[in-house]
Design a protein around this nucleic acid. Structure first.
Length: 418
RNA sequence: GUGGCGGUAGCUCAGCUGGUAGAGCCCCGGGUUGUGGUCCCGGUGGUCGCGGGUUCGAGUCCCGUCCGCCACCCCA
């Protein structure tokens, strides 16, 4: 260690070190596999976007825009923001590349880092990874169900069983304004039965008065239980749509809980909303949140296009797997370790390694000056299936549960190649 | 952002009411062994998060700060 001051990673960020990579890739690999099976194609968008993209779509009143965005100006005074969520950028790309002229629906997904300036904690990061899966250009309720079922299948594939799915519909342009009127009226009449926290919500974002329902004082809960809910105030079209979603979920055996007060934190949502809630003890247990956003694309200047999607937190999914005791896959071992005795011909070894690797054999040798015993330990750590011990003039091939086998130098590469 | 708890070796932690730092694991070497396991012996490694203060003396007490965790808020 030097005497220079040590530099740590920024608050709320984390490294994904090699030891964690098998777990990580297990999750992302399974997701990629399912996306392919369900017809979602991969897209990659920039880490930062025009700030207006998020201000317009998330809503200026949202927590994200209010206090969580990493916004900065570049050297040309453009206001840019590190993406806090994945949906708006994908919709932006959809419009920008004219994907509305492609055959619909357009199914897209990405696995990307997201940035939110908030208080960090377990499963709560300022930079976290999220799978965003989005189906654009269809308002068929069955695609809602299919998307939800995709994630449900992912959990099953990953061995997560302790979770539940919360489902609701928050209506459309037709029924939500009327509902909001009704709700505002009720809140005004019943203000004296509510606490300060709830009243503040009533002022800023009436739909969210039901947030964190369980933590509210009992009398406030009792009052809110009588309040009209969006889920019970839908117009005929939304009722039909929601019934279609549920029927399709039932048909594929996806279990859900209806939560008539479930709303989302971003303004762009309409109709179907859902959250997968995992087994974490604390309040960070939402592993996936999503919903339909039928007005988002026109909001950013595109043609009227319905859409639905979800954001699935990778770290929270990994925690959910941990909490269930899911055995993570181990590291893949190498094929051959070339151990060196004193006097081993290093140049020839270098040539053998190059030839083996050219033949597709994962091969490794000693570079740390270890003793032979240390090298054999190292070979075991690397998961080497076979070890060749090279002396000055000859070599010995060692394989588990087989007698040692002398190998001529000239025969080594062919003996070890497939 | 507010409140609570915590930061000692790469990891998990011990260190009593202040007296100048330890264990296990890991890593390296040696021995044993059937040359990758086991067991035994030895070794490397720490400005006790950082900065101030109190004190003859601070890992230990006080203040600040950073980081982590928990609760609130909200979300992935």
């Amino acid at each position: 260690m030097s005497d220079r001051p040590k530099i740590d990673r920024p608050r709320g960020t984390h490294d994904i070190v090699p030891a964690e990579m098998p777990r990580w890739q297990h999750v992302t690999g399974e997701l990629e596999r399912l996306c392919r099976l369900y017809g979602y194609r991969r897209i990659v968008t920039p880490v930062f976007e025009d700030t207006a993209l998020f201000r317009r779509t998330s809503g200026v009143g949202s927590d994200v825009v209010q206090k969580e965005m990493y916004t900065f100006t570049d050297r040309s005074d453009r206001s840019l923001t590190l993406r806090p969520e994945g949906t708006a950028p994908i919709c932006r790309a959809y419009v920008e590349h004219g994907m509305h002229r492609d055959p619909q629906p357009v199914k897209l997904f990405t696995i990307a880092s997201m940035y939110r300036y908030g208080a960090p904690g377990r499963g709560r990061y300022r930079e976290h990874w999220q799978a965003s899966v989005e189906a654009l250009g269809s308002d068929d309720p069955r695609i809602d169900a299919e998307l939800i079922q995709l994630y449900d299948t992912l959990l099953a594939r990953l061995g997560v069983t302790r979770y539940h799915l919360e489902l609701n519909s928050i209506g459309c342009r037709e029924c939500r304004p009327a509902y909001l009127e009704t709700l505002r009226g009720w809140l005004a009449e019943n203000g004296q039965r509510l606490d300060a926290d709830t009243l503040a919500k009533a002022e800023a974002s009436p739909l969210r008065v039901f947030d964190n329902y369980l933590a509210k004082p009992p009398d406030v809960r009792a009052a809110l239980a009588e309040a009209p809910t969006i889920g019970e105030s839908l117009c005929a079209a939304c009722v039909a749509h929601f019934a279609g979603v549920r029927a399709a979920l039932d048909a594929t055996g996806v279990r859900y809980t209806l939560v008539p007060t479930l709303v989302r934190g971003l303004d762009y949502y309409s109709r179907t909303t859902f959250e997968f809630v995992g087994p974490m003890a604390n309040e960070n247990s939402t592993i996936t949140g999503g919903g339909r956003y039928d007005y988002l694309i026109e909001e950013i200047g595109g043609p009227q296009t319905p859409g639905i999607g979800f954001g699935a937190g990778v770290e929270r999914l990994l925690i959910a797997m941990d909490e269930e005791g899911v055995e993570p896959p181990g590291d893949e071992g190498i094929d051959v370790f070339v151990a060196l005795e004193d006097g081993a011909p290093r140049e020839r070894v270098a040539r053998w390694l190059a030839e083996l690797r050219r033949a597709g054999v994962a091969a490794e040798t000693e570079y740390a000056g270890r003793s032979l015993k240390g090298q054999l330990t190292q070979a075991r750590r690397l998961g080497a299936a076979r070890v060749v011990v090279v002396g000055p003039d000859s070599a010995t091939l060692r394989e588990p549960s087989r007698p040692d086998e002398p190998v001529e130098f000239d025969a080594i590469v062919s003996r070890l190649s497939p």
